[in-house]
Design a protein around this nucleic acid. Structure first.
Lengths: 242, 242
DNA sequence: TGACACCGATGTGTGCAGACATCAAAACTC
DNA sequence: GAGTTTTGATGTCTGCACACATCGGTGTCA
């Protein structure tokens, strides 16, 4: 992607809003943004429109472009997630993602065991075995790739497009784990086996066992990552009433 | 809100893409859209930029504006969900949402029992009792409002902004239930009690009981709605590899 | 005199029209 | 078939007219 001006403007404003450099309630003028970003009005306007659809800003005539509070941001947008992962709120974002995965993956395992097409089931078993081998041989790079592939295929096999869409975020959390040096040289033997158990349960159509194995995996993942957000306060989004 | 031209253009193109009137791979020219929608270039461009950020289209120089396949759409965007709910894929969208709620709400109940601030716990209990009363007295309108409020407060009390963001979608599924005439005159007595049990378990910090009650509620909701999507085929999103 | 309703000036986003720049697909040349 | 040129669409810039929310002044009435 040859970063267009439009894309760069979104990136610039998005990161600055999410890091808090542009705080809630801060008001910008389109004209001012033109000269600050050294781009034309059309670029600014198109970027603002996109940020508006992400819930980061709102525009009001006679006032300007107002930065909205975090409770209005769309927490499922991949751009927003990416920006938060590279901000001070990284820990809180990881916790949210892990909690979401912990809720969704066992359900996805159950659905996959009941509905996945035969090819995906076979693929899942193959990946699980390769994953175990990579874990034993200590090939960290290959292990990471297979781990991502495993969970991606599982989510895809659920036949729920919302679950499947979380693939990208899962990849982020898994790669983030290596970045933080949280990967042991030799992955936990139990975890390797749980992956195999999960894959074979899905292949056999055993939904209950698949869910159990997935819950085991997520419990371990949670406990391994929970150290990164111990100091992050929880944010309680106010209920929006009409 | 005097729907701006920009907003109308997004609505027009978004619905037509999601209903399939503009099929995957269909190519449009910005110039052509100008005269079709009777708007200027800037309106078209800003609308296309937003649709691009939703994954509905991509733009390529020398080619035009290409409609992307459903697997590229952002299934968590509230606009996309709304468009799908009012299309032929309504059943499939409802199934996705219910499966997501079934996975998330029990987890949210657990988190709320562990983390929710005292005021939200009290509010949840109050709403649960009012909900039971409304159920007994047969006030369908009030019942719906309280039902939505109950689940909103629960999700909000989880302290996970991604869970909390699902409030809007939950409201859609619940109101959709009345639209489809799936609401009995007098709600199920057990369901009313489960809401009270859930609220009191959250108030008491009893995570396990809260989860159980939530699972009961979601099981019943699923079984009551499952009739609407019996004929909807599942879509398996291909795994995107780099 | 003070409170309140009205109204016009002001400034900002919204929408429009036209031009040039850029760059990748397509056509062409060798 | 590889390399080059042409072409046509999006990308970017600019000047202008309009809509309309906000603010402050003015006038009216109690």
């Amino acid at each position: 992607m040859s970063t267009s001006l439009h894309h760069r403007a979104i990136e610039n404003l998005g990161t600055r809003i999410i890091t808090g450099e542009l705080p809630t309630g801060h008001i910008m003028l389109a004209e001012h943004l033109e000269e600050e970003l050294k781009v034309s009005r059309s670029v600014v306007r198109e970027a603002v429109r996109v940020l508006q659809s992400l819930g980061l800003v709102e525009t009001t005539k006679r006032v300007g472009i107002r930065v909205l509070p975090p409770s209005r941001w769309n927490p499922f947008d991949s751009q927003v997630i990416r920006w938060r992962l590279s901000s001070d709120a990284r820990g809180a974002q990881l916790r949210s993602l892990i909690e979401l995965r912990s809720a969704v993956e066992p359900a996805a395992a159950e659905l996959a065991a009941n509905n996945a097409p035969a090819q995906l089931r076979r693929e899942l078993v193959d990946i699980a075995h390769a994953l175990r081998d990579a874990g034993h041989s200590g090939d960290a790079q290959k292990f990471l790739e297979l781990d991502i592939a495993f969970h991606s295929v599982l989510l895809s096999g659920s036949g729920n497009e919302m679950f499947a869409n979380l693939m990208g975020q899962v990849a982020e959390t898994l790669t983030g784990r290596t970045v933080h040096g949280l990967m042991p040289d030799h992955p936990h033997e139990g975890a390797l086996q749980w992956h195999v158990d999960l894959a074979e349960a899905v292949a056999a159509g055993d939904a209950a066992t698949a869910r159990d194995a997935s819950e085991q995996i997520m419990r371990r993942t949670t406990s391994r990552l929970s150290g990164t957000w111990t100091d992050q306060p929880r944010v309680f989004i106010p209920v929006r009433r009409n």
